[in-house]
Simulated assay, not measured.
Amino acid sequence: MTDCGCEKAKAELEEYLHNELRKNDAADIQEHLASCPDCSSEHLVGRTLTEVMQRACKETAPEDLRDQVLIKLRALQASH
C-alpha cells in the first residue's frame, strides 16, 4: 500500500464511503485518511451525511400525508 495523496483521496471519497472501490484502492485511501487531517475531516463530513441520508430514507411518511400527496398528484395528472 502507498499513500495515494489528497487528490486521489478526495476524487474517490464518494466511492470509498459507499464501499465501491477495489480493495487495494480502498486500502490506499484509508491509509491516506489516517495521516491527513484535511482529508480525514472531509471523510467525517461525508460519512456523517451518508449516515443521515440512510436513516432518513428508512422513515416513511404518515398515511394521511401520503394520501394527500397522491390525491394532489392525481388531480394534476387529470388536468394535463
Rank of each mutant, 00 (worst) to 15 (best):
M1Y: 13
M1K: 06
M1H: 11
M1G: 11
M1N: 13
T2P: 02
T2N: 04
T2I: 10
D3V: 08
G5T: 08
G5I: 06
G5C: 06
C6H: 14
C6T: 12
C6S: 15
C6Y: 12
C6L: 12
C6E: 15
E7I: 13
E7N: 14
E7S: 14
K8E: 14
K8A: 09
A9W: 13
A9D: 08
K10V: 04
K10F: 00
E12T: 13
E12A: 08
E12H: 14
E14R: 13
E15T: 11
E15P: 08
Y16N: 01
L17W: 09
L17A: 03
L17R: 09
L17Q: 07
H18G: 00
H18Y: 02
H18N: 01
H18S: 00
H18I: 01
N19A: 07
N19T: 02
N19G: 04
L21K: 03
K23G: 10
K23L: 14
K23P: 12
D25F: 12
D25Q: 14
D25S: 15
A26P: 00
A26K: 08
A27P: 06
D28P: 01
D28V: 05
D28T: 11
D28Q: 15
I29Y: 03
I29H: 01
I29G: 00
Q30P: 00
E31S: 08
E31A: 11
H32E: 04
L33K: 13
L33Y: 13
A34R: 08
S35V: 14
S35G: 13
S35F: 09
P37W: 01
D38Q: 04
D38F: 02
D38P: 00
D38S: 02
S40T: 02
S40G: 12
S40I: 03
E42L: 15
H43Y: 14
H43C: 10
H43R: 05
L44T: 02
R47F: 06
R47K: 11
R47Q: 10
L49T: 05
L49E: 10
T50M: 10
T50K: 13
V52M: 06
V52T: 04
M53Q: 10
M53V: 10
M53I: 08
Q54K: 05
Q54N: 06
A56G: 02
A56H: 00
A56L: 09
C57F: 12
C57V: 08
K58D: 07
K58N: 05
E59R: 15
T60A: 12
A61T: 09
A61Q: 11
P62V: 03
D64T: 11
L65V: 15
L65C: 10
L65R: 11
R66T: 15
R66W: 11
V69Y: 01
V69R: 01
L70T: 14
I71V: 08
I71S: 04
K72F: 00
K72W: 01
L73A: 10
L73P: 03
A75Y: 12
L76K: 09
L76G: 09
L76C: 07
Q77A: 09
Q77T: 04
A78N: 05
S79G: 07
